[in-house]
Nucleic acid binder design. Structure first.
Lengths: 159, 159
DNA sequence: ATAAATCATTGACTTTTTCAACTATCCATA
DNA sequence: TATGGATAGTTGAAAAAGTCAATGATTTAT
């Protein structure tokens, strides 16, 4: 007998296609796990008026690294013009500010306001919960191993 | 003094933003590694008139699993209408065919033609090379571990 | 037999991505 | 120190991808 939980999750997904050879493809696995995580992430972030994109921009603005928009674009694998739009909105909401670069006045350093920092703290907690839900199939050791492998693939042993 | 290799790769990316806390976020790491892999993948698949999406549909059509369009949509995290468009094109090129489901005549089973199988074999080899390039920072054991963790996160210990 | 649900499809609509200008600024060098 | 070429951010247009509701055919449940 079905319960109310049915509207939330497919308890038995019956993924017969898991047997296909493409299930061995790293690109496919990355895309699929990212897709399922994104759903949870965006759902959690919506409470703060954020999506994955704006959240990651806000996260970088909250670092002490003084990132420029171009650095953000490269790091987030986005077009510089997309960063403009994302920051425009965050700035309009008073969460981040643009400041001219110190050495290079063409560049703009994006940093979080006090309110941006407060929103980020809350959003970060929600994102952490969403991540835990997305990786519920793994235990703590495995999650650490997964992240370590992903970082190594991206940036080498150093990172 | 720069050489011709500069147009291909940033040798020293100087990713200072790696230090940001978001670099510990699984969702971000998945997105970023997938993004960099997609570039290589799509570049490799372009030789066969394919992209990641059409390649994965062709891959499923090449399995013996007799997938329906709906099953493909669910498995590939796509809207059913997107599957329609992808299959329309592959069918127009003579790489796959639609057949009515055996038990359910509403459903359509997508399978590869002989030509579709031939194209897929070549594309698969190219995709394998692209994946190897995308995961060049990991050794064989690590790649297997990464894939195993991704599969476990998606489908549990069974898969 | 009827009603409700499901599959593929279409079309409208929104969002995201991509790309080519453009201005301001920086850098190299003559 | 002036000139030329590169780079950062911005704008806007066009292409691609994603979302969603409606529809006809078929299946399933009652």
């Amino acid at each position: 007998m079905p319960t109310e939980a049915d509207e939330q999750l497919d308890i038995v997904p019956t993924e017969k296609l898991v047997a296909a050879t493409i299930s061995q493809d790293a690109g496919f696995l990355l895309a699929k796990l990212h897709a399922s995580g994104s759903v949870l992430n965006n759902r959690a972030l919506a409470d703060f008026g954020l999506k994955e994109r704006s959240y990651s921009v806000l996260a970088l603005a909250n670092s002490e690294l003084e990132p420029t928009q171009r650095e953000m674009a490269e790091f987030l694998s986005l077009d510089p013009s997309q960063i403009v739009a994302l920051i425009d909105e965050l700035e309009k909401r008073g969460l981040v500010i643009r400041a001219p670069g110190k050495q290079d006045r063409r560049a703009k350093i994006v940093s979080a306001t006090a309110e941006g920092a407060a929103v980020f703290r809350q959003a970060e907690a929600a994102a952490r919960e969403a991540e835990a839900a997305a990786l519920a199939g793994l235990n703590g050791t495995e999650i650490a191993a997964l992240k370590g492998l992903l970082r190594k693939a991206l940036w080498g042993p150093a990172a």
